[in-house]
């Protein structure tokens, strides 16, 4: 027996087909804006505004060349890549360590720590952005990628901690005791035995952080206001809109450069995206 509720009976062909066709049409309209920008990135400016069709007459790859070199998207791509990768590493290590002790150990002050963390979930980002900008300026890291990377990693860990803590708390105690008998210390037990067991959570947390870091806008737009060199892709496309307002096809190409890597990642690792998203309400 499946755990799903089936109310579309297999025998009722008409109902089945109606629902399928409806969702097919719905899906097409749903995804049309994304298909539109993909097709616009390969069209001429004239053709973009010519009709609703999605197939370009001739593929204009020069649009990507113009965006990558002319509008500096190449540089922004690598900025974004560095920020994303480094912040994923920082986030996985720090929230993994935190979740490990929260999930498996009792120690004085634990409840207070959890309480503070839960309270921070609902702080709007707009509320903290100005002091963050000021803090990075005071630390003299507001003009390079270091500051932006650390700030990106520092902003959203609560759900990750809960995911780690939940998973760690379900690992049997015997494993740890066996490790202790073998003479493994606290850190070695964590790195050699515990962390490898949590691969699914590491994957989920990494994916969520990739999504967050790659797509973040408010933080990078504020931090890079005076430093175009450290812009991320999102900020770059936004600036592109201001600077080269009439280069529609170039802007579409820049947009595709920004969104395509994440869409591809999503298509291949969908399971982890879904688990990460659903973790927020299951907990």
């Amino acid at each position: 027996m499946s755990k799903y509720l089936n109310f579309i009976a297999e025998k009722n062909q008409v109902r089945y087909l109606t629902i399928t066709v409806f969702f097919l049409i719905f899906s097409f309209f749903w995804i049309y804006p994304l298909l539109w920008v993909l097709s616009a990135s390969l069209k001429t400016d004239f053709e973009i505004w010519g009709g609703l069709g999605l197939i370009p007459d001739k593929l204009i790859w020069e649009n990507f060349e113009r965006a990558w070199f002319g509008a500096n998207m190449g540089r922004y791509f690598f900025n974004t890549l560095i920020i994303t990768v480094v912040s994923v590493v920082i986030v996985v290590i720090t929230t993994g360590m935190f979740g490990y002790v929260i999930g498996r150990y009792a120690f004085p002050g634990k409840k207070i720590l959890i309480g503070i963390l839960i309270a921070t979930i609902f702080i709007p980002q707009g509320y903290t952005i100005i002091p963050v900008f000021d803090l990075l300026t005071d630390l003299k890291i507001s003009k390079n990628l270091i500051g932006l990377t650390i700030a990106t990693a520092g902003h959203t860990p609560v759900i990750y901690i809960l995911l780690f803590a939940g998973y760690f708390s379900r690992i049997p105690v015997e494993l740890e005791e066996a490790a202790k008998m073998d003479g493994a210390g606290f850190i070695r037990t964590f790195i050699m035995i515990m962390l490898p067991l949590t691969k699914p959570v590491v994957a989920t947390v990494s994916i969520l952080q990739v999504l967050h870091a790659w797509n973040d806008f408010l933080l990078p737009v504020v931090i890079t206001l005076g430093n175009p060199d450290i812009r991320t892709l999102s900020v770059g496309v936004y600036a592109f809109k201001g600077e080269y307002f009439v280069d529609w096809s170039g802007m579409a190409a820049a947009s595709v450069i920004t969104i395509l890597p994440i869409i591809i990642l999503f298509l291949f690792m969908q399971k982890y995206f879904v688990e990460g998203v659903q973790g927020a309400v299951k907990g």
Binding site: P33, S234, Y238, I259, I263, F273
Partner: peptide, 10 residues
């Protein structure tokens, strides 16, 4: 789900 993973600024 596809729009969810697309950069919001884009």
């Amino acid at each position: 789900f596809m729009p969810v993973v697309t950069a919001i600024a884009i």
